[in-house]
Nucleic acid binder design. Structure first.
Lengths: 348, 348
DNA sequence: TTCGACTTGGCAATCGATTGCCAACGCGCT
DNA sequence: AGCGCGTTGGCAATCGATTGCCAAGTCGAA
């Protein structure tokens, strides 16, 4: 068999058993079932294992116990590569939490195309993983099958999918953007622009609603809120700024709320190059808390998402599900954001 | 056995065999060895598999063939969370390439502490993975064991470790920064500052050498190059800028080369807030090609790393090693960078 | 000394897919 | 009709660890 391709398999449990002079079952129990094996025997086994450099073969273990300790994280279709680091920060946090608890993290679908969804489903069904974290994405489907058919625990991070039966960990977008709008109103601003993201996006729905309802509650007439599309990226912010610049001076808003930092950055860059001054002529605020914001000129006001906490909660929730705890399918953990006001906003 | 914990195992190969009226071996071969099974039989098997929704159990397969199709990527100890997205872009590129070729990607060590190296080694030895990509890190060690002991194919991405016997995929830092320095000299600059990173870092060594040797070749006296420490982050750029501001006006350099974009951004922010104008008073250039650079005020000149190509090459090289191709241990693939000049530089 | 309760460790089946080996079969040729 | 070769598919061993079951051993109490 393994003739041409001799992968050094390392010592197996049988080797350790022989070395220690006990049965394989004893070795297995000594290493995994504390208390099941008498102390002297256990020490003997441990010594033998260390001497041989034995490491348990996770593949064999997984096959036998019918469970892996590997979690898959599905990253968003577009990674929103820009200024904000929510994806990377979230990933770091999830990875750290899982690793601490002895789990592995498998990455899926960094760039989603037709075949990748199928790849995900196949992996899920193939017994390779024990749970899934959806990061700012909807559950993949392929052929007749969906992720749900794998019968695995699933947690949604960033998108609230608890109404669809997926426990979710989310920022309180609505309350956060509402606070930002109120802060701008308190500074005397009365005419607003909201530069939104993609219309079908979960965050967009929360954020645009937050702006509208808060302004309405403050008594700002609907006509004094202009909504532009920003697509969550730099170019969208640039386009929105061009629209903004095209309106007559006296009709221009003095406060601009953007659906994320990238949009705000594109906006600021464009109006600045056109000769306007931020914040003297117009105040701008973003969303996400990109680390670079503090070092922009002017420094960027933003709504900071606590990405690390979000990731921790998601990982923790999933582990609890994997380990058999019953979690309500409409479980929803909300993490507050922090309003960070910097140079890009000023009194009207 | 599995009484309390009935994980729905899905159909097995035996179920498919029964459904199709053939032996399990026939099913296995029909699904994996094209040509080995007569066409009519193969179709029968495929139909049965589809009908039952059969998916191969990767765990069992891996155990039998002694090989997984999972690659581990070790991310840098500090993720350099700032403006540049090299880690995320590289990750995306590696993930995409591996997925296309039917491999999985396991993430390790996003935050390295004492126990995580051990976790990595254990995983590597445990037969869970078939290869490792080191992303801007040195090989982990734990206890008496190092990653090398696992006998797995390893590729280094970003750091040139080919002298240590690890095939590497790297940017040509030296040539790139040399080109940048020459460009600044061509613009008439004669006094330089180099804001470096951490002294023991691979990139730092390349980049500082590039600056020194290029200036020397251009006949700029060593006294007209001032070297400051920037630590690769915003705060380091800020500190360097404070040092810079403290020197007397007539002694100040007019060209600042930074070891990465974050440093450059911190530098620009600080000197701008202090009343200097970039680029009128001082030209600044970064390194990495952070996407946000184009939208800074002033937009940031930088040396763009082709992260996607780097990732592709690394993944491709590793796959070739995994699949048995012989690769020279001192293999070194160099990917050129692109100099991108924007508003932050101007004639002296 | 004997009995029962408890502890300890070994035997062997098991997880699911792969694969070496071989038997059966079909086909063409003499 | 008989022979040989190539193709097809089945049997059963195998990968390495886990675990139900049971036997042997230990200890204390009567």
């Amino acid at each position: 068999m393994a003739r041409s391709d001799d992968r050094s398999p390392g010592p197996s449990i049988a080797d350790v058993a022989r070395e220690a002079g006990v049965a394989t079952s004893t070795v297995s129990r000594a290493l995994t079932k504390p208390g099941r094996i008498a102390e002297p025997t256990r020490l003997k086994v441990e010594a033998a294992a260390r001497k041989l450099g034995y490491t348990v073969n996770q593949t064999a273990r997984s096959l036998r116990v019918g469970q892996t300790r590997t979690v898959m994280i599905v990253l968003p279709e577009t990674l929103y590569i820009g200024a904000s680091q929510t994806v990377l920060e979230g990933l770091e946090s999830v990875a750290r939490t899982l690793t601490e608890r002895g789990y592995h993290l498998l990455i899926a679908n960094v760039s989603r195309e037709a075949w990748t969804d199928e790849h995900i489903i196949t992996t899920a069904l193939g017994g390779t993983i024990c749970g899934v974290i959806l990061m700012a994405t909807l559950p993949p489907k392929a052929g007749g099958l969906s992720l749900a058919d794998a019968g695995l625990p699933v947690v949604s991070l960033h998108f609230d999918q608890s109404p669809e039966g997926i426990p979710s960990v989310v920022s309180n977008d609505f309350a956060a953007i509402s606070e930002a709008v109120r802060a701008l109103a308190d500074m005397g601003h009365r005419k607003f622009v909201y530069v939104g993201g993609r219309a079908d996006n979960y965050h967009e729905l929360q954020r645009v609603r937050g702006v509208r309802e808060t302004l309405a509650a403050l008594g700002v007439p609907a006509g004094d809120l202009r909504e532009l599309r920003g697509d969550f990226n730099f170019a969208g912010g640039v386009r929105a700024a061009q629209d903004y610049l095209n309106s007559a001076d006296e009709r221009r808003a003095t406060a601009v709320v953007c659906a994320n930092d990238d949009t705000a950055i594109g906006f600021i860059k464009t109006v600045t190059d056109a000769g306007l001054n931020v914040p003297a002529d117009v105040s701008v605020i973003g969303f996400d808390g990109a680390p670079v914001g503090a070092f922009m000129v002017p420094s960027l006001s933003t709504i900071q998402q606590l990405t690390t906490e979000l990731g921790q909660h998601a990982a923790d929730l999933l582990i609890r599900m994997v380990e058999g705890e019953t979690i309500a399918p409409d479980e929803r953990i909300e993490v507050p954001c922090q309003l960070v006001l910097r140079q890009s906003v000023a009194d009207a």
